[in-house]
């Protein structure tokens, strides 16, 4: 029923003379208003800020460094290594006597970085690839999207692990490997959106006055994909984090002394039979809370930027 009575007004074409600029600004303005009204999304944003601050400045607060071994703990981690305010091991120590607070800061930093860098690569590569395919259409589009189809049908995690084995297990390789597979979905989405807007007046006007395709794609199409891309990118960050944690959980991702959430969770899981549960629970907590917040944030952004989507 809202279709009949509520939204009818939005469907009315803008009166002639209404330029793009004020409408555009009010669109973002509306989006912000809608976002702020979504309490779960705002709370998620706050949580994410806190996690980021933790990753950036946790080192300055920590009483121990992440490499230092507390020799007094070694051998009696289960008895004395529990979280304690007195000895400065706020999250306890791991099985090697290292401070878990500092290790968690280090792992959070790497996991967030993988998430953000992976999402960025996918945004840049995927958007350009998809916009190009969608804009030119025809045979080029067919070939480009067929390539995406083929790549998508591959169980990429196996290839990614193969890749890591061949080129060595380093953070850099992890970035490259994850970036290589992450852009596929984004390319499809960007292409679909491009098909929608390439027949709009401002694009056709640009074509008519002889603007070159490269410039049309970069200046006219890509900016208009922004809303969808932002929403999708926030949803990509958690999946990048999950990929990385997956590989590191298997011990095939980041290598000691570096660490990440997946590696820490694996460490904790392998030690839980000795009763040092804090080793599992602290990294798990950060992982779950961050992922939760990212999903809610993505949802909030989608509602804010694309109100017609429901």
């Amino acid at each position: 029923m809202t279709l009949l009575f509520g939204r009818r007004m939005f469907r009315e074409p803008l009166p002639p003379g209404t330029g793009d600029a004020p409408a555009g600004r009010s669109l973002w303005h509306d989006a912000r208003a809608r976002f702020v009204r979504n309490r779960a999304a705002v709370a998620s944003l706050v949580v994410l800020l806190l996690v980021t601050l933790f990753a950036l400045f946790g080192d300055f607060v920590a009483a121990w460094s992440n490499e230092e071994i507390d020799w007094s703990m070694l051998g009696s981690v289960a008895e004395n290594g529990a979280p304690s305010l007195a000895n400065g091991h706020w999250f306890g120590v791991d099985e090697l006597g290292r401070d878990l607070f500092a290790r968690t800061v280090q792992g959070t930093r790497i996991s967030l970085m993988v998430g953000i860098v992976g999402a960025l690569i996918s945004v840049v590569v995927g958007t350009l690839y998809g916009a190009t395919a969608g804009y030119f259409g025809g045979r080029l589009d067919g070939v480009m999207m067929r390539v995406v189809d083929v790549l998508m049908a591959i169980p990429y995690m196996f290839v990614l692990i193969l890749f890591m084995v061949v080129f060595g297990r380093s953070i850099l390789m992890l970035f490259i490997g994850i970036g290589l597979v992450s852009w596929l979905d984004m390319a499809r989405i960007a292409r679909g959106q491009t098909l929608n807007i390439k027949h709009r007046e401002f694009v056709e006007a640009a074509v008519a006055i002889g603007v070159r395709p490269r410039r049309i794609i970069l200046r006219h199409i890509v900016p208009n994909l922004l809303g969808v891309v932002i929403v999708y990118a926030t949803l990509l960050v958690p999946s990048m984090i999950i990929y990385e944690s997956f590989i590191s959980f298997l011990g095939l991702g980041v290598q000691e002394p570096d660490t990440s959430w997946g590696a820490l969770i694996n460490d904790g899981a392998s030690q839980m039979q000795y009763g040092t549960l804090w080793q599992l629970l602290f990294p798990l907590f950060f992982f779950v809370v961050t992922l939760f917040s990212l999903f809610f944030l993505g949802d909030g952004l989608r509602d804010a930027l694309d109100p017609n989507d429901r």
Partner: peptide, 29 residues
């Protein structure tokens, strides 16, 4: 379904083992 989104297999596996093997002792680890 929202909760399970943040519980991929490598998170579920240790949690399940913790509960059903280490605490309850119902299932082999």
């Amino acid at each position: 379904s929202i909760g399970a989104q943040v519980l991929p297999n490598f998170v579920m596996a240790p949690i399940l083992t913790l509960v059903f093997t280490l605490w309850l002792g119902w299932l082999p680890g």
